[in-house]
Design a protein around this nucleic acid. Structure first.
Lengths: 348, 348
DNA sequence: CTGAAAGCGCTTACAG
DNA sequence: CTGAAAGCGCTTACAG
């Protein structure tokens, strides 16, 4: 291995000078600079990262502000796991990650936690911008402080975010459509279920809906009706109240797409009604959904890879802060298509 | 951060002694040992890996012997990529990887390359044991030299391999079956195509066949015939010669499963015959197959994750050699289920 | 059984 | 603009 010392000797200068050149710290005669650069290149010098970290004593503080992964939202637990995995692969470096977990859909809590975050020194932030307006404010403050930030899960416009890592919700809507189209007789009708108090506010679900419908415009063979219904909560009373009349009036429904992770709520309804033949496709891989996948009430689940999201986010941010390597602005992750037979391969 | 020096001071000994205790290098009075251990624990000491690598000057040589990834087998190129990715995440350490790439199905070449490998010093080996007998010999020699080795892609019994990372071929046969079963009318017949000169020799294909059939024994709804055919090569003459009579005699065939990566060869046949309605499911994600996925002659591809295989293999082997962390003996990877709509999310 | 010292490859003031 | 020296946290002989 070539060391700075080797370059220094060959160039007839000291190691300090070589270091100055290599790090563009100035205060070097142009002639010396050129010489050192030339020799470094000739010798194919690669810095010893272990030595660099040790000597520089630099440490990196990264803050993460995402929803907490409580029972109903274990989804967000996986992001944490991913970030922690990435952290352990960054072991040789001094990276400190501080977590600020806010209650999902609680604006006040987000503001509190983000204020706390801003009170601590940090070199970069990973944000899940699920609360649009509050996040915009937060981003402005980060911009002022010159702290880079990276979005996971959701993308929002009009910010200076370093990058985004998450789902292509439109495309994943198309995937749901293509799966249903593959299994369903072309003349049957399809029901689209959105479980949400306020559909307008949930970009993801909207995009999935759009993608879903677009598939049948340009690629699908299904010619049946596409019926949409909005159910405020996954509670069985709500589900039953909404679905009973729909099925009564539309006996031709052969498949259901649920645009969110609450797919299990619809599976439960099908189970109660003994409607095993209705195709059901939904989102996110976690215990409650998996249970119904096993019972074959859910046919396919389309899963984001939240762990991978967290992992990549931390690594990208670190590489940017430490090495100034600029990541792709938008990275759409691959999704997992899961049915009952793929379960044995997933360690859950 | 707590340093060895801190422990030493608190224990009233030198750093050398602490180091001896921490690394079980003996030559320490039991009483001192206990004291140091106690203090290290109290202080929650974590070694600084950067300093360790730098000071120890240890380097790790790992050799990789797998098939070369030529045109027909780009599959194996991905393993290389994966290994190289893992290598770069191991940057702070001095890890050297030597590649020994042999011609697929060329026993003589494997013996040559493996002999060359044994002539160089190395601390661990990653092997793709696709040639069973030759690999067994090779493993014996590694055992004698006390060099640990890890299998990727294929598993063979009766060796002391450290671990295996690869496909659960039986289960992935079941997955193919479940996909076909989802899309096909239950009364239709299914054709199973094995493209191989000698099916007995290709464990993978065999297991996929078994898994495929097992699905219909215990879970499937399809009641049609399951017809098997073996085609020696993916050349169109061979394919046509075999398939023409089969389709003539079995007009009820509605779906085809190809047990290997040569799925494109069957897609080509369907294209020539204009048989777009026949469902086609096969294996491995690469350009030639993807082309027919786009044209909708292939409905689903089930993809191993060769890159991930390579990555995990190197990391596991490194962690074993460097930290003596024992990996799980067998790790079956998840598979990707791909259709036309998932393509935009794959960067290919 | 133990300690003092040198060194891994780099960075960081400091002196000139 | 440049060099000499100290130090990052650990390991490694060596001397006793």
């Amino acid at each position: 291995m070539v060391r700075i010392k080797d370059i220094a000797e060959k160039a007839g200068v000291s190691t300090g000078t070589v270091d100055r050149v290599l790090h563009n710290r100035g205060e070097v005669a142009e002639k010396t600079r050129q010489l050192v650069l030339k020799i470094a290149k000739e010798l194919n010098y690669k810095p010893n990262i272990a030595a660099q970290t040790l000597a520089s004593g630099k440490s990196y503080n990264i803050s993460v502000i995402i929803p907490e992964g409580r029972n109903e939202n274990i989804f967000w637990k996986s992001h944490l796991t991913g970030i922690k995995n990435a952290l352990s692969s960054l072991q040789p470096f001094r990276v400190n990650v501080s977590f600020y977990l806010f209650e999902l859909n609680n604006e006040k809590d987000f503001i509190e936690k983000s204020t706390a975050l801003l009170n601590e020194p940090c070199d970069g932030v990973i944000v899940a911008p699920v609360l649009k307006n509050e996040t915009l404010d937060f981003c402005n403050k980060l911009d002022e402080l010159n702290i880079p930030y990276l979005f996971i899960d959701t993308f929002i416009k009009d910010t200076n975010c370093l990058a985004f890592i998450g789902e292509d919700a439109y495309q994943s809507g198309r995937i749901a459509a293509s799966l249903i189209d593959f299994g369903l007789s072309p003349e049957k009708d399809i029901l689209i279920v959105n479980i949400s108090k306020n559909l307008d506010n949930t970009q993801h679900l909207n995009s999935r809906n759009q993608g879903f419908l677009s598939y049948f415009m340009d690629a699908g063979r299904n010619t049946g009706l596409k019926i949409s219904v909005e159910i405020p909560t996954p509670e069985q009373e709500d589900v039953t109240a909404k679905l009973n009349p729909i099925f009564k009036n539309n006996p031709g429904i052969g498949a259901i797409m649920v645009s969110s992770s609450k797919t299990y709520a619809i599976a439960k309804y099908l189970e109660q009604k003994g409607m095993k033949d209705v195709i059901l496709v939904g989102y996110e891989i976690f215990d409650e959904n998996i249970r119904y996948l096993k019972k074959r009430y859910i046919d396919f689940l389309i899963g984001q890879r939240p762990e991978e999201q967290g992992e990549k986010a931390l690594l990208k941010l670190f590489n940017y802060i430490a090495y100034n390597s600029i990541p792709d602005k938008k990275e759409f992750q691959a999704v997992d298509i899961i049915n009952c037979e793929t379960l044995p391969l997933i360690n859950k």
